[in-house]
């Protein structure tokens, strides 16, 4: 194929509430940027062509496949990954529901399922069976079968409704708290 010029681009993106900036080859996918550059390895890579959904993250609150998106495409946008969900050791209601309802076995697909479910529940706190299946149908699990996963998302939806908050609303509040200056320097 002959030699190719290696070019660089500047990627400027907010990830889990933090501004990030990097000089990268344009071919670096958002998934590789998150995993390799930022060390956020909770975003998993399965098929790497947009089918399995393991790499699903939120871009401005919308679930997208980070394996078929370039990091540079995310410039100027907000990315939310699974790492943003737990708040000071306390699991997010979506994560807790997957524990309570046995929605995971090996756990490889779980971050993708949870991020896809987060978009759905933020948009619709009480989704219909069809909406639930259409969203989760875009994610692949090879261990548990899907019943327990569907049950987990239903359970999370119910708990969130009881608290009167959306999955991302909860997140925004936690991120604000983390970002606020405090006396005991909480670090990450």
């Amino acid at each position: 194929m002959g030699e190719r010029k290696i070019s660089r681009v500047t990627v400027e993106v907010t990830v889990n509430g933090r501004r990030q900036s990097a000089e990268l080859e344009p071919r670096v996918t958002l998934a590789d940027f998150l995993r390799v550059e930022l060390g956020l390895t909770g975003t998993h890579l399965g098929c790497e062509h947009g089918v399995c959904g393991a790499c699903t993250v939120l871009l401005d609150g919308r679930a997208v496949r980070s394996c078929i998106m370039l990091a540079v495409q995310a410039t100027g946008h907000e990315v939310t990954t699974i790492e943003a969900l737990a708040n000071e050791g306390e699991l997010h209601p979506l994560q807790q529901a997957f524990v309570d309802k046995h929605g995971l076995q090996c756990g490889f697909c779980t971050p993708g399922f949870i991020m896809a479910a987060a978009e759905l529940l933020e948009r619709d706190p009480d989704p219909s069976e069809q909406a639930l299946l259409e969203t989760l149908g875009g994610q692949v699990c090879r261990c548990t079968g899907y019943e327990a996963i569907i049950e987990s998302v239903r359970d999370a939806a119910e708990k969130l409704r009881q608290r009167g908050v959306g999955p991302l609303g909860l997140l925004a509040a936690a991120l604000e708290k983390k970002a606020a200056p405090s006396g005991n320097g909480g670090g990450e």
């Binding site: 947009g50 959904g53 871009l59 997208v64 259409e134 969203t135 994610q139």
Partner: peptide, 12 residues
């Protein structure tokens, strides 16, 4: 549109 891939693809 509802038949086009999955919501996670249609978002992009």
């Amino acid at each position: 549109l509802r038949h086009v891939a999955h919501p996670q693809n249609r978002n992009q």
